[in-house]
Design a protein around this nucleic acid. Structure first.
Lengths: 107, 107
DNA sequence: ATTTATTATCGTAATATTGCAATATAAAAA
DNA sequence: TTTTTATATTGCAATATTACGATAATAAAT
């Protein structure tokens, strides 16, 4: 096994799980925090800041891009990574909806 | 490798990542939704509801318990699992703080 | 006391994730 | 054109996660 049985869950449940999974790494949390506080957010600066190898950071950035939480704008040989504010807020609403929809009937 | 370098991140970043990781599975999302909408939240009912084997559900419940999102009360040979409302709200606040603290200086 | 019912734990196979060296790609600088 | 700089991709080793059969543990029912 080792394979999540996504087919037995609904779209919303799988969507939430994917979002949580992308956020489930301290490096990706740190990258998001760093990007959001910089005026110039260049990949190479992130490598210096975080302390992981360049390919590792590149891979984490790819995962953050996969759910569009960040977007990269090519500027010559550099890439400026930025928070996708629209998606960021959408995700926050989605997570809050999940937390608010629990009804606590039990115990 | 395959081992997350937690030591290079701060406590808050690691704490957030752990919470996100616990929530990063559709079965655990489904379990939380199911528990929160039942008056009687018995482990065996969860097994019937979700469609994964009993040991698998038991393992997922253990992970949810590990960050105290749920608590289990033994009732004879059954166990009543409930949302830990205090922790639930704490986690929601923690996640919202993370989302609100991004400042979007860039781009 | 034995059986039945409910949940937890162990062991293990399959798959996923993490991290990095090596290398590729692409654009600017020399 | 060659070199340098910045980022992405590939390939791989180490570790983690997912799922489940087998089994243990515990309490109720017979």
């Amino acid at each position: 096994m080792g394979l999540t049985k996504t087919q037995i869950f609904n779209t919303r449940q799988n969507q939430l799980a994917i979002i949580f999974k992308v956020l489930a790494h301290p490096a990706r949390i740190a990258i998001l925090q760093y990007i959001s506080n910089q005026k110039e957010c260049i990949c190479n600066d992130i490598v210096d800041e975080i302390g992981l190898a360049q390919p590792t950071i590149s891979q984490h950035l790819k995962e953050l891009k996969s759910i569009e939480l960040i977007q990269g704008e090519i500027e010559g040989k550099k890439v400026c990574y930025c928070i996708n504010l629209k998606k960021w807020k959408e995700v926050q609403v989605l997570l809050n909806t999940f937390f608010d929809q629990t009804k606590f009937n039990c115990c």
